[in-house]
Each structure stands twice: as structure tokens, then as C-alpha cells.
Deep mutational scan, measured.
Amino acid sequence: MQIFVKTLTGKTITLEVEPSDTIENVKAKIQDKEGIPPDQQRLIFAGKQLEDGRTLSDYNIQKESTLHLVLR
């Protein structure tokens, strides 16, 4: 499924993921596309910060959901 990741600069990254993918996994995909190390990434969905060990389905993230990427 496709999800979108919006950065603070207003750029939107499109990722191909599975509901069973972990947040860690998603961060690795963002690193592949954008070169941002996962340890600098914070992903936010519905106002919650997403934890590395959880999966997209844990957070009920469905196709075409938009996550927000904050760098630390």
C-alpha cells in the first residue's frame, strides 16, 4: 500500500509499505529515499509519536495515510 510522509519543509514523500511493516522499517525506507538517518527521524500520526517496534497496523495506519516527519 502507499502512504505519504510530509516533511517540515512541506515536501511529501510517497512510500510503498505493508501494514505489517514496523515503524523502524518505514524509517529505513525514508533513509533510502531521503538520506536521513533513522535516529534523527520522528514520525507523527494523528498527533502521536510512533514507536520503532510497533507496526503500521498497530496504529491503524491505512493506505494513503499521511505521516508527519520531524527531525531531531
Rank of each mutant, 00 (worst) to 15 (best):
T14F: 09
G10M: 04
R72F: 04
A28D: 07
F4V: 10
T9Y: 10
S65Y: 10
L69V: 11
L67F: 14
T22R: 12
P37W: 12
S65E: 12
R72W: 09
E16R: 15
L15H: 00
I36R: 03
Q41E: 02
D58A: 04
I44S: 07
Q41K: 02
A28C: 02
G47M: 08
S20M: 15
Q49S: 08
I36K: 03
K63L: 08
D39A: 06
K27C: 02
T22W: 04
D39I: 10
E64W: 11
D52F: 08
I44R: 14
I13S: 13
I13T: 15
L43E: 00
K27S: 02
L69C: 02
E18V: 10
T14D: 13
E51V: 06
D32Q: 10
R72N: 07
L69N: 01
N25I: 11
I44N: 12
L67I: 08
K29I: 09
K6I: 14
T14Q: 09
G47E: 08
D52Q: 12
F45H: 04
I36L: 06
T66E: 08
E18M: 14
Q41N: 03
H68R: 04
T66I: 14
Y59V: 03
S57T: 04
I36C: 02
D39E: 15
V70P: 01
T12W: 14
R72T: 09
L71C: 03
L69T: 02
D58W: 14
L71A: 07
I36V: 15
I44T: 12
R72H: 14
S20I: 10
K6L: 09
M1L: 07
N60C: 03
Q40T: 05
E18L: 05
N60D: 11
K6V: 13
D21H: 13
Q41R: 02
K48H: 12
K33L: 09
Q41H: 06
Q49M: 05
I44W: 11
D39P: 12
D58Y: 07
K11H: 04
N25K: 07
L67M: 04
I23H: 02
S57H: 10
K11L: 14
L71G: 05
K33P: 03
G47K: 05
R42E: 08
R54Y: 14
T55G: 04
E34A: 09
Q40K: 04
T55C: 02
D52V: 08
K11C: 03
G53M: 09
L8S: 10
K29A: 14
R54K: 13
Q40H: 09
N25S: 07
A46F: 09
I61N: 00
I30Q: 00
L69S: 02
V26Y: 00
I44L: 12
K33Y: 14
Q2R: 04
L8P: 12
L50K: 00
M1C: 02
H68N: 10
L56D: 00
A28E: 11
E24G: 08
V17A: 13
P38H: 12
R54I: 06
F45Q: 05
E18W: 04
E18N: 07
G35A: 10
F4A: 04
T22M: 04
I13L: 05
K29V: 03
S57A: 04
Q2S: 09
R72I: 04
E64F: 11
K33G: 07
E24M: 05
K63W: 10
G35W: 13
V17T: 04
T9L: 06
E34K: 11
L69A: 03
E64K: 07
Q31R: 05
P19S: 09
L69P: 00
L67H: 01
Q49R: 13
S20F: 13
E24Q: 08
Y59D: 02
I23T: 14
K29Y: 09
K11T: 07
P19K: 15
E18P: 05
V17S: 14
F4E: 07
Q62M: 06
T14M: 08
L15P: 00
T22F: 15
N25Q: 06
M1N: 03
R54F: 09
Q40W: 13
R42A: 09
Q62E: 08
L71I: 11
K27T: 03
E34I: 14
T22G: 03
Y59C: 02
L50H: 00
T55F: 04
S57P: 05
G35M: 15
K29R: 10
V26S: 01
K6E: 09
S20N: 10
F45D: 02
T14K: 13
P38L: 14
D32Y: 11
